[in-house]
Nucleic acid binder design. Sequence first.
DNA 1: ACTCTAACGGAGGCACCCCTCCGCTTCAAG
DNA 2: CTTGAAGCGGAGGGGTGCCTCCGTTAGAGT
Lengths: 190, 190
Amino acid sequence: MTFPVGEIVASRRPHRKDAARNYDALLDAAREAFAEHGSDASLEDIARRAGVGIGTLYRNFPTRRDLFESVYASDVNELCRVAQEVAALEPWEALTAWLRRFAGYMVTKRAVREALNDESEIFQACRESMYAAGGPLFERAQAAGEARKDMDFVDLLRMVAGITATAFDDDAQRDRVLAIALDGVRTTAR
Amino acid sequence: MTFPVGEIVASRRPHRKDAARNYDALLDAAREAFAEHGSDASLEDIARRAGVGIGTLYRNFPTRRDLFESVYASDVNELCRVAQEVAALEPWEALTAWLRRFAGYMVTKRAVREALNDESEIFQACRESMYAAGGPLFERAQAAGEARKDMDFVDLLRMVAGITATAFDDDAQRDRVLAIALDGVRTTAR
DNA sequence: ACTCTAACGGAGGCACCCCTCCGCTTCAAG
DNA sequence: CTTGAAGCGGAGGGGTGCCTCCGTTAGAGT
């Protein structure tokens, strides 16, 4: 499986040493800022965090969307990688392992969640990448009679994303609630 | 059951006729704006929508929080009322009917969701009001062996709030996913 | 009708953010 | 080492939102 998403990110990275360093710092700062304030975090604040002038930010990422897409793409990339790691497990375990990783990820990545419904080309490519990575895990679980068949993978991701996105008292509560919802996914197969 | 939350809102309402009219217009405008833009909607925009000067807004609600609390409290009040309406149904039906109402409510009320973890006095009072209204429905379902006992009402509300808060392709998808998660709540009792 | 007081509204000062533009700096190729 | 081009940073203009202050308006009690 190829991940065009990763290439998109890589292709933007400048060649000169100082420029590349700034580019990385910006992406890191943006990842952090988007996690804290959602996709409309202040760009000037991001430049500040990265220890870089606002002009440098705009040169690397002419629009807010460019920056956002780059962060998003690299996040999705990571999730695709994880899908390969868990593929060796039993069907249901593989699925839930990946979903839990997806969930743990979403907790800090409000940005990913907000982009879940974006129609633009890059976001669509990212989603397809992610579906291609996680979808087979779900279909395998369905084929094994472990997951209900009256829902699709997109339904499932939305459910997990929603639960993960809300604020909980602690991680234990979040895990408990997620487990209950996943029981619902498994329920009719029993 | 009393609803102190309702009194809080009522007690703020001015006596003079024009003032009372403005107060109501502000509350309506704020409800709308908070639904659209979340709890940090522009106050000047709210005043504009209400057809009222910004000064009037600040006289009635000295801080953003005051305004937000008033809207929130009146929303919660409505949910408490609904809880009484459904009390006559069978345990599981009563619970899900209320939760679906809660869910349909949350879809448009981003504000309510954002306040779900606020620690301040009024928000706490509102939550207690809401728990007092909906909690018994859940406990009744548990007692009837219809709902699993290894979770509490707060867990349940968080779950529903989370699922409801995410963007779905359409209402049908949202309902489907919510139903699946609720199957998980019922699961162990079977 | 009269009055006086509560209520009104928006101008204006401050802060923050967006984005462009351009003189200065630094890399790396030769 | 030299040098030109790529990269840098931040000043500044425009926009929006927050909140205060005060001259003006209109309700309610007599």
